[in-house]
Design a protein around this nucleic acid. Sequence first.
DNA 1: AGCACGCCGACT
DNA 2: GTCGGCGTGCTC
Length: 658
Amino acid sequence: MPIAHVALPVAAETTFDYWCPESLALARGSVVRVRLGTRNLVGVVTAVADTPRIADVKLAPIADVLDVPRVADDVLELAAFIAAYYEEAPGLAYALGVPPLTGARSAARAKAPVDLDAPQVAHELNAAQSAAVAAIVQSHGQFATFLVNGVTGSGKTEIYLGAADRAFADGKQVLMLVPEINLTPQLVARIRAARPGLRVATLHSALAAGERRAAWMAAASGEAQLVLGTRLAVFAPLPQLGLIVVDEEHDASYKQQDNVRYHARDAAIWRAHRRGVPIVLGSATPSLESWHAANEGRYRRIDIPSRADPRAQLPHVTFSSHRAARGTDGIGEALRAAIALRLARREQSLVFVNRRGFAPSLICAACKWDAQCTRCSARLTTHRVPPSLRCHHCGHVEALPTACPSCGNVDLVPLGLGTQRLERALVAAFPGARIARVDRDSTHGKHAFATVRDQMEAQEIDILVGTQMLAKGHDFPRLTLVGILGADNALYSADFRATERLAALMLQVAGRAGRAGLPGEVIVQTDFADHPAFVALAAHDYATLAESLLEERKAAQLPPFTHAAVLAAEAHQRSDVDAFLAAGHVSALALAADQVDVFSPVSALLARRAGFERGQLVVQSERRAALQRFLAAWRAELLAMPGRRVRWSLDVDPAGFG
DNA sequence: AGCACGCCGACT
DNA sequence: GTCGGCGTGCTC
């Protein structure tokens, strides 16, 4: 009787053995329904064997084989790699490759996402774009990693499409990853305009189950030529894969922060290698990991230093004092005058502050009491719409007090700057101007952002205020001024990646200015204009900043010169966290060979969140393989440790740590 | 991940 | 004396 090894979506360390009834046709990759304990679960067959791996257990049968395409070998292997590399339960990793299921069991053929017979149009590239495409297509049919380092507006999308055309010409499919759902509709619209008739399928978590399944089926049948999606699309079935593109490769949202903590960019590189196809990573501000890999010759860097539209100059960047802007709700004189000029010229302005709410605090002027979250070690943010105190870490909401709870003083001061305060100040400074705010509070629902975008394009908005939601990938031809406020806050961060992220964010936001014929201007309010991040912004020189940050990382023995993992633990009692991490520390020290450095347990940067005390322990190694061996052994010991009411996780290649 | 089994506080 | 609290561990 054949035995199937079935990966199930449970946090178990192994796959499970089931026997297959002869009536069921089943192979590696089959998606099956089985009973585990009292539950019915859907899993994937990872192997078929002759004899069970376990004795003394009466095996249950496979209940059913689902009528969906089998999970392909490269996806199964990707899941196995992710489980091993990120120290995750294999079943949870394999679940990422299982087709989205709907209530309906019928294997209905997906409708063609777009019209099939629209003609291809000719497309012109400038010299830099053509050279980039030529370099990439030379690797057609073989693995190679390209890092397209192109300033904002340099036309990276055209390069992706130019390279993709080579794959399409061969009947191949292209996988394109984007960091956020917000970017998908506009990118799809641009691609459809540039390549009418191209069969595009989009995949992201906001799709209804049926839509996601339809896109999955279109990818699996080879019908979709371009599969465009967020990180989960890296598991899409792609029988004719010819090229992978990872747009905005530096973006932190490629790293899944919960469940299975994989990095979609790195998973994509693994898959490109496995399939023997080229992969293109694109960014105006590449991650230091990718920059370093290019320096080492593992990736080929292609620089696009100027904008594609010859009329579009890179914006002129100036600095004005942040301190002098106090008392004006953040808007300094230079910015005020620049906005007034745009209003007079009927051009648009964008004012960026990476903090939602009215102010990041509420402080008593008399006794210095400040509003703290009861469940987190953090201040509450003052909101005015609606009036409330909100914790941005746990979601806790309470009423805005009218007097200080500590001394009774009624003079409570919201200190600092958020989008709501900035919006109010702009309304006061520019009566009659049409102002819109875009942040997580204002923009919920999947069409809200599209509405703002349409209004911007129709010139129904004069001034856009918002957070990093505004930073990415949106072209507004009449947007000529960008104000950047509150950037100095990032300079105080304890996270070693803070400068890299600040520079990336500012360059992305600044890139919104002057994308068409009108010259752009960027005004940054800072008291540290000689900081390297601001110098890089003014000179449009990310390369020098990247090299100097890499020097610092090398001197400090930080990633990408070492490989790191973080053991994060949380519990209601601090003593439980400390005891667990202390035991983990002892275990790590005993297991660590001389190639692995084990640091002492410390409190997390946010010491308490949602009522949980949090701590962490960092381990590092210059040798990735040595770290992997260590992590596997260490995790086995951690799993065997008594539970002690502690929730813990291992984060390999963490996005950042203090 | 669920869900069941197993040892310590407030009820009829 | 039991009902049930959740902490621990197993599920093919």
